[in-house]
Simulated assay, not measured.
Amino acid sequence: MHRFKALAGCGLASVALATAAYAQTTGGNTYEVTGGTSIRGGTTAKPKAAGLQFTFKLSDPSGNVPQVVKTYEIDVEGGKVNSSLLPGCKAAALDAAQTDAKCPKDALLGKGTLTALIGKSGTPAADALTCSLPFKIYNSGGGKAALWIVARQPTCPVSLAQAVPAKWTKHGTTAGLSFTVPDTLRHQVGLDLPVVSAAATIKKITKKSKGRSTGFLESTGCKDGKRDFSVTFTTEAGEKQTVKKTLAYC
């Protein structure tokens, strides 16, 4: 496979454990994020296993190619990630092999699709090429994850296979996922590669651990009965925007 390193930042894969929809604009970018699960409740002592659906959209209100997002930070109140529950498949191993064929079957968390533009930020989006890429989300162990992105013609002008390393995060009762997209995946041959939409589903996965059924993603509830859900987008210019929504339930 011809490896063309491109089109990799995708804001997805988190532990959002409720439904949210919100849009916000910063600089030249407008962000819209939605996420949800059917699981509600749970406590720290008795968490509930959960799955996840997550989408985001990015656009420029002027109809131009949007600014490239460099870093994504996804945070959800009342969430927990048990990354040691499943075997791992590391981003470096995926890149070295140029295939996920050797990844443990149980390391696969979910799948999704992203769409990226190939053009120059600030120029008309109608003149940019579009690339649609499927991806898989793997647990990597040690509190890490990997986004495995593969593209084939004709749905994309180029063929590629590339991993994006990510890290599961924990701040008090808030859990999430964060990753920084490498420069080689944000630019190619003098062009910008902003990801303008992404959608993913992480399965509800449970395993027996210490005599009880444990979920890879779990809901631990919220003290005020409401769940704070947020995604922080940071562009290459350093413009940071947090799209936050407080849900009426948890």
Rank of each mutant, 00 (worst) to 15 (best):
M1Q: 09
G9Q: 14
G9R: 09
C10I: 10
L17I: 13
A18H: 02
T19V: 03
A20K: 11
A20Y: 02
A21V: 03
Y22Q: 13
Q24P: 00
T25E: 08
G27F: 02
Y31R: 01
E32K: 05
G35R: 07
G35W: 12
G35P: 01
G42D: 08
K48P: 08
A50N: 05
Q53I: 12
F56E: 07
F56S: 12
L58Q: 09
S59K: 07
S62R: 15
Q67R: 15
T71D: 14
T71A: 14
Y72A: 06
E73P: 00
I74P: 02
D75V: 15
K80Q: 11
S83Y: 09
L85Y: 12
L85P: 14
L86Q: 06
P87H: 06
G88C: 02
A92K: 12
A92D: 08
A92C: 01
T99N: 02
D100M: 04
C103Q: 05
P104V: 09
K105F: 05
T113M: 14
A116D: 12
L117Y: 09
G119T: 05
K120E: 12
A126W: 04
A128E: 03
L129G: 06
L129I: 03
L129M: 10
T130P: 00
S132H: 01
K136P: 00
S140T: 00
G143Q: 04
A146W: 04
R152P: 00
Q153E: 07
C156G: 08
C156A: 12
S159I: 02
P165Q: 05
K167L: 04
K167S: 14
K167W: 05
T169N: 02
K170G: 03
K170E: 09
H171V: 15
T174K: 11
L177A: 10
L177W: 15
S178E: 15
S178D: 12
T180H: 10
T184S: 09
L185V: 04
R186T: 14
R186L: 15
Q188G: 05
G190M: 02
D192N: 14
P194N: 01
P194S: 01
P194Q: 04
V196T: 15
A199G: 13
A200M: 01
K203V: 00
T206D: 09
K207V: 09
K208M: 12
S209V: 14
K210I: 04
R212Y: 12
R212N: 13
T214C: 13
F216I: 07
L217F: 13
E218N: 12
S219Q: 08
T220A: 13
G221I: 11
C222G: 12
D228S: 06
T232I: 05
T234P: 08
T234A: 06
T235D: 10
T235W: 02
E236F: 06
E236D: 15
E236I: 11
G238F: 07
K240H: 05
Q241A: 13
Q241L: 15
V243M: 07
V243Q: 07
K244Y: 04
K244E: 13
T246D: 07
L247I: 10
L247Y: 05
L247N: 15
A248V: 08
Y249G: 11
C250K: 10
